[in-house]
């Protein structure tokens, strides 16, 4: 009998605790947006759920969709590979934006006898290839950059993304920075009017077409290139040094970017200064309203992001993402206080 009451009491306490947890935060953190960071968000969410019991429902519907959904406030946070400008943030109903994790974008080639990081390109040459101005692999510009390599006298087959993508945005942003002709004729966006080449869907589509088409060139995320053993190229950066696309060179680019003076963290980290900087680096962003409707949900989301910054670096590196530098994380966390509930109280 005594045993019985003890058991009952235990059950009662457990039930009360469970109830308390439920009233504190019901359900999951909801977010939507970019596909590029989806694998790492999913991994973080999995580990976070094991620790705290709070899950994440992230729909990887693309950056454009993420921006639309956070504008409509149907999710707690949006995610985009393309940062919004200060005006755009304001127009979308006062959003706050910060970078979450980074990656690199690397040109990949299929040239007989040429292995990863043997071919070197610079921004001007890359832009002229994608503009259709350089059409042969043994063009003088390419030979000058690669004096030791035997380049074939073959036509260059250009492969680009056919779907709108943050990868394309950062790639074309880089080309616009290094080439006046690219900037005026093509410009930068998640999808552009490509002067030459074939379009393939997704990183895997580009990778596949490059692997299948001899003498081709395309661009993919570095993580994707590494996992699929594609032939990557080296790039000459702003400082005039040839670098390979690695986690270190991407992090160097981010460290050299001036985040503190970027309003709304609008910072595109392509073509950054520094000897070790990888020139086509990219960060992916989180969007949240400055004045939230559901303070509970927003608090949980911020707690999750804070946990990711603190404990997520190893998981990110494991998936070939590059964690944000410590000084940037600190800066971002100090801004979270500006996210307030309906009464004007900070949610965190």
């Amino acid at each position: 009998m005594q045993k019985m009451t003890k058991l009952m009491r235990a059950v009662g306490v457990a039930g009360a605790l469970g109830l308390a947890a439920v009233t504190a935060f019901a359900g999951e953190i909801s977010g939507a947006g970019a596909t590029f960071p989806y694998p790492i968000y999913a991994k973080w969410a999995d580990a976070y759920k094991k620790e705290t019991g709070i899950g994440l429902n992230y729909q990887s519907i693309g950056s454009g969709g993420g921006i639309k959904q956070i504008k409509a406030r149907t999710v707690t946070f949006g995610a985009s590979d393309k940062p919004l400008t200060e005006q755009e943030l304001e127009k979308a109903g006062n959003l706050m934006q910060w970078p979450m994790v980074m990656g690199g974008i690397v040109p990949v080639v299929n040239l007989p006898g040429i292995h990863s990081d043997q071919l070197t390109l610079d921004g001007t040459t890359l832009s002229r290839i994608f503009l259709g101005e350089i059409t042969k692999w043994n063009d003088p510009a390419l030979r000058k950059l690669n004096p030791g390599l035997k380049l074939p006298s073959a036509a260059i087959a250009v492969v680009h993304r056919s779907d709108g993508s943050g990868t394309t945005f950062n790639f074309t942003n880089y080309l616009s920075k290094v080439s006046e002709s690219w900037k005026t004729n093509v410009g930068e966006a998640t999808s552009v009017q490509w002067p030459v080449g074939i379009g393939a869907k997704g990183n895997e589509g580009v990778a596949n077409n490059v692997q299948q088409t001899k003498n081709s060139i395309g661009y993919v995320e570095t993580a994707y290139a590494k996992q699929n053993k594609l032939t990557t190229t080296r790039m000459v950066n702003k400082a005039g040094k040839a670098v390979s696309a690695t986690a270190d060179s991407v992090q160097a680019a981010a460290a050299n970017a001036d985040w503190a003076h970027a309003p709304g963290f609008f910072q595109i980290i392509t073509d950054q200064p520094g000897d070790a900087s990888w020139p086509i680096s990219a960060s992916t962003f989180i969007l949240m309203p400055m004045q939230v409707r559901d303070a509970n949900a927003s608090r949980e989301a911020l707690k999750f992001f804070s946990w990711c910054y603190a404990h997520g670096d190893a998981a990110a590196a494991g998936l070939d993402y590059v964690p944000m530098p410590a000084n940037v994380k600190k800066l971002v966390e100090s801004r979270w206080k500006e996210i307030k509930d309906a009464d004007g109280k900070p949610v965190l």
């Binding site: 950056s63 779907d163 709108g164």
Partner: peptide, 18 residues
């Protein structure tokens, strides 16, 4: 030569159309 169709264009670009 490469080309495109109506449905392929929509499928490719709708998600990221801002």
């Amino acid at each position: 030569a490469p080309g495109t169709t109506i449905s392929a264009t929509i499928a490719n670009e709708f998600t990221e159309a801002d």
